[in-house]
Simulated assay, not measured.
Amino acid sequence: MADGSWLTGRRRQAWVSFLGAHTLVERVVERHLHDAAGISHAEYEILSRLRNAGGRLRMGELASVLFSPGSRLNYRITRLAGLGFVRREQHPVDRRGLYAVLTAEGAEFLERVQPGYGDAVQRAIGEALTEDEFLELGRLSDKVFRALCGPGAT
């Protein structure tokens, strides 16, 4: 079925619904973060990933987990550094290596913003789905994610 004929009827409707839902959820979360915190969803994810990694990641690792091209990540890190939320550090041995480091101000900012972020996600998805449906959405999303990131993935 490499000709795309599988994307017809109910499968097409499911795909269109998925795309529409993803776009609208992202819009709700993006608007909340912009209005409440002055940052983008991508910038929030950088701060969150750094915190979850113990406060520092090599730039290449961060780009990889965020699926972000280096130039876009550098732009966002520069912006977050200007806000005092992150800083760059040179690798102690590998002179080409750079770390993104979450600052104390960045960690405090994330703590203040996180509850509202959770509320935005709840408004965008949680109110439409039961707890079991929400968990099933996560399970299915994880299945697609792993298939796309696994061995032989494009």
Results as ranks from 00 to 15, higher is better:
residue 81 A to F: 00
residue 154 T to C: 08
residue 153 A to C: 13
residue 135 L to N: 12
residue 16 V to Q: 10
residue 50 L to D: 01
residue 94 D to K: 03
residue 4 G to P: 07
residue 28 V to W: 00
residue 28 V to N: 04
residue 18 F to M: 13
residue 84 G to A: 02
residue 90 Q to Y: 06
residue 67 F to V: 15
residue 100 A to D: 00
residue 14 A to Y: 02
residue 108 E to C: 04
residue 126 G to P: 10
residue 123 R to K: 05
residue 66 L to D: 03
residue 132 D to F: 10
residue 39 I to T: 03
residue 136 E to N: 13
residue 48 S to A: 13
residue 73 L to G: 04
residue 58 R to T: 13
residue 145 F to R: 14
residue 89 E to F: 10
residue 62 L to V: 06
residue 12 R to S: 08
residue 69 P to L: 09
residue 84 G to Q: 03
residue 60 G to T: 07
residue 42 A to R: 12
residue 17 S to Q: 13
residue 68 S to H: 04
residue 122 Q to P: 02
residue 52 N to V: 02
residue 112 R to I: 05
residue 137 L to G: 15
residue 52 N to Y: 06
residue 82 G to S: 04
residue 123 R to W: 01
residue 107 A to S: 14
residue 105 E to M: 13
residue 95 R to L: 08
residue 107 A to I: 02
residue 35 D to A: 12
residue 27 R to K: 12
residue 122 Q to K: 15
residue 25 V to Q: 03
residue 35 D to T: 13
residue 152 G to D: 05
residue 8 T to A: 12
residue 41 H to N: 15
residue 90 Q to M: 07
residue 137 L to V: 11
residue 129 L to V: 08
residue 15 W to H: 14
residue 82 G to N: 02
residue 55 G to F: 01
residue 104 A to C: 14
residue 110 L to P: 00
residue 30 E to M: 04
residue 1 M to W: 07
residue 33 L to H: 00
residue 79 R to N: 05
residue 12 R to I: 10
residue 106 G to N: 00
residue 74 N to C: 07
residue 48 S to W: 10
residue 127 E to N: 14
residue 153 A to Y: 02
residue 14 A to M: 08
residue 15 W to T: 12
residue 148 L to D: 06
residue 15 W to K: 11
residue 59 M to H: 12
residue 67 F to R: 14
residue 134 F to C: 04
